[in-house]
Simulated scan of single mutants.
Amino acid sequence: MRSVVFTADFSSAHQWVAGRSRAYPDGGPTNTGDNKLDHLTADPEYSRTGTFRARRRADGLWDTGLLTTEESAEGFMVRSGDRLDTTVRLPTAPGAWPAIWTWRDGGNEVDVFEYHPDNPDLLELSNHVRRGYTYVRDAAVRPGGVVDLSVTFGARSVIWELNGRQVFADGRGVGSRWRAHLIVNLSVCAGRYHPTPDPDVTEMSYAVTSLVVHRPRGVLQEPEGEEPLQAC
């Protein structure tokens, strides 16, 4: 049995910090070394409604929306054994790079999904903790399509479901002590692996309409640096 331990309210400054992350050099605002044209912004119009936007700047970069639980007042982290459920509406413009992922100190990244409209029916699913990854093709995955995704961060296997159907179990897992903050964002590709946006495209977006984390009952939220506690 599981209990809901986190329900995303993207408008909440208590839950989410906007426009910066230690996943970016010096916390941002740019990350060109990762083939991104992002210039992170804390402007609520870019993320706080659950629609994550990117808009072209005059300097060739793009103002982009990013939210993270890192350094928020609540400081929520997903943990080994948790399941994350989310519903997203995918972007349509080539060059868009939406993702939901985890981050803590560089060794805790799991990608709930990444998507690139130039591969219209393909999702990228990755466990960077223990190098488990795959590409999933499905007719439900398409530019502008709405998909339900579930990820269980198992100690021995991370399991992904798409629209209620299991599509990948990596058989590697994250280990029993794993934990990490959540990041939800829209990046823009710089052209190394995926095309940059067409010259006439000035804005892109995708929407996250729900994001909920469930935890096995009896596992409590423990202080930093301690092992999970079991309820009596």
Rank of each mutant, 00 (worst) to 15 (best):
V158I: 00
P199V: 04
V158D: 00
V174G: 02
V201Q: 02
A190R: 05
D148I: 10
S176K: 13
H214Y: 15
L186C: 05
R217H: 09
N163L: 02
R142T: 09
G175V: 08
L211K: 05
P143V: 14
L182F: 06
V174I: 01
G154Y: 00
G218C: 07
E203Y: 07
T202M: 11
H181Y: 14
A207D: 12
D200L: 14
T196D: 11
D200T: 15
G191N: 02
R172L: 12
S187C: 12
P143R: 12
S176N: 14
A155F: 11
A190V: 03
S187K: 04
T202Q: 14
V167W: 11
G171Y: 09
T202Y: 12
Y193S: 15
V208T: 07
P197F: 04
V213E: 00
H194D: 08
R142W: 06
D198R: 15
I183P: 08
F153V: 09
P197H: 06
F168H: 09
L149D: 07
N163D: 12
A190N: 01
A180Q: 03
G191Y: 07
R165H: 12
I183G: 06
V212C: 08
V212Q: 10
S205Y: 06
G175E: 03
F168M: 06
V184Q: 11
A207T: 15
T202E: 13
F153G: 07
I159W: 04
R156P: 12
I183V: 14
R192S: 10
W178N: 01
S176L: 14
Y206L: 08
L162K: 01
G154I: 01
H181K: 06
R172A: 11
R192N: 13
P197A: 08
N185I: 07
G164F: 03
V208E: 03
V147G: 02
E161Q: 15
D198V: 08
G145E: 02
Y206H: 12
E161W: 15
V146N: 05
E161R: 15
G191R: 03
L162W: 04
V208L: 10
V219N: 09
P199N: 00
A155K: 09
V219E: 12
V151W: 01
G218Q: 06
A180W: 01
V146S: 07
S176C: 13
